[in-house]
Amino acid sequence: MSEAIAQWRGFKAATRLGWKISSNWTQPLIFVIYSVLRPLSAAFILVIMYRVISGGAPGTGAYLAFLVSGVAFWSFVQYGFAGLSNGIVEDRGEYKMLKYVYTSPAHFYVYLLGRGLAQLASAAASAVIVLVVATVALRLPIHPLGVNYPLLLSASFLALLAVIGMAMAYGLLLLQAVDAHGYGELGSGVLYVISGAIFPITVLPGVLATLASLSPLVYWMELIRRSLLGSQAIRMFPALSDGDVMLRLVVTTVATLLLAHLVFTWADRQARRKGLIDMESNW
C-alpha cells in the first residue's frame, strides 16, 4: 500500500470519526435544529440589541446584515477552532485514544485535518441555515443571485485554512494542561472580539485594534460582507479595494499558518518530551 493511500485512508477515517462524534448522538433533524439554535439565538440577540438602539431607523437592513453575516460565519470559527482544539484534548482525556492515533502510521497532521473538516461540515450547515432564516425573517438585502461566490469561497477557503492551523497549534498547546476544560471556548472568545464578527474593529482600543488587523479573520469577515451585500455592505476598511483586502487575507493567512506550524512543532516536541500524549487528564 502506497504512503499516499495510507494517509488518505487515515484522513477519511478521521473525518468520519469527527462527523460521527459530533452528529450521531441523535436523529438528523434534531441535529440540524441543535446546530442552528445557538447561532440563530445569538443573531436574534444582536438584532434586538440593534433595534433597541436604532428604533428601526432607515438603513437598518445593511447593519443587520453586518451582524447576521458575522454571527452566521462565526460558526466556522466556533466549530473549527473550539471544536477541533477541544477534540484533541477530548481524544486524550475522555476517549483515551490520542496515543493510538499518534502512534499510527497516519500523519498526525492528516488526522487532525480530517477531524477539523468534520467540524467545518457541521459549521457549514449551521451558517447556511442561519443566513437563509435571518435573510427571510429580517428581509436582509442579500440576494442569492447577486452574491460574489468566487470571492466568498476563495476568502473562506483561506480563512478556514488559518482557523484549522490555529486550532491544531492551540489544541497541541492545551495538551500541556491537566485540566483544559473551557480553553477551546476561551481561545475562540478572544478571536471573537478581534475578528470584526459583530462590531467593526475600529471601536476597539488601539492595541486590540492593531492585534485585530493582524488576524486573517477580520479580512475574511470583510470579504464575506462585500461578497454577500456588494455595495450595500458596511465596510470596516472603506479605503481598501476587494483586491487589497484579499491580499491582506493571503498575507495574514500565510503568516498565521507559519506561526501555527512553529507552535505546533514546539508543542508536539514538548508533549513527547514530557509524556503528555497519554497523560491522565481531567475531562
Partner: peptide, 11 residues
C-alpha cells in the same frame, strides 16, 4: 464583546 456592540451603536 457585547459592550463593544453597544459602543459601535453609540448606545
Amino acid at each position: 464583546a457585547m459592550i463593544y456592540v453597544y459602543r459601535a451603536l453609540h448606545a
